[in-house]
């Protein structure tokens, strides 16, 4: 789903009105826009910049610095697999390979049927229960390929 210009305008205006008086409102506004539209569309950047009296480059810099923010909406489901050291030490590499093979996509990609987006993240703070992933916003620990396969299967992703 891609938001149209009117929706982007409405969403940004509402977020700015709610938060522009807070100290350092840019991140809050970006979170709000992504929460509502599923992404921060390129069209929203100049609107936010103007409202906060920042340059487009500054806003774009923040959006592109934080991998959390995306320019296009994710798939119906999102798997954020931790690729940091502790998870690697607990067979995270093999899990990552499995995820790529099973979903037929690489990190940072969305399946063509729009069902799943696979992302690499770096530390979810759950190292003691590694390997970890955030699946549709839910933290999962001691994840193995069986659990991941069950999850993907329940979403109706063809094998």
């Amino acid at each position: 789903m891609t938001a149209d210009s009117a929706a982007i305008h409405r969403c940004v205006t509402a977020a700015v009105a709610r938060m522009s008086n807070e100290p350092g409102p840019l991140l809050e506004i970006l979170h709000s826009v992504q929460g509502e539209l599923g992404c921060v569309p390129a069209e929203a950047v100049p609107l936010i910049a103007e409202a906060l009296n920042l340059s487009r480059a500054e806003v774009h810099g923040v959006v592109s610095f934080y991998h959390h923010f995306r320019e296009r909406p994710a798939g119906q489901h999102t798997i954020q697999l931790c690729r940091a050291e502790a998870c690697q030490a607990m067979k995270g590499d093999a899990l990552a390979e499995f995820a790529k093979q099973r979903l037929q996509i690489g990190f940072g990609q969305t399946r063509e049927d729009g069902k799943v987006t696979l992302e690499a993240v770096f530390c979810l703070g759950n190292c003691a229960c590694a390997p970890s992933a955030m699946i549709d916003g839910q933290l999962r620990g001691r994840l193995d390929s069986e659990a991941l396969a069950d999850c993907v299967k329940s979403w109706g992703v063809p094998a």
Partner: peptide, 14 residues
């Protein structure tokens, strides 16, 4: 009987 089951993120993740 009182039973404690942790509710923090890590316990919930498993």
């Amino acid at each position: 009987t009182t039973v404690y089951v942790p509710g923090d993120a890590s316990a919930v993740s498993v």
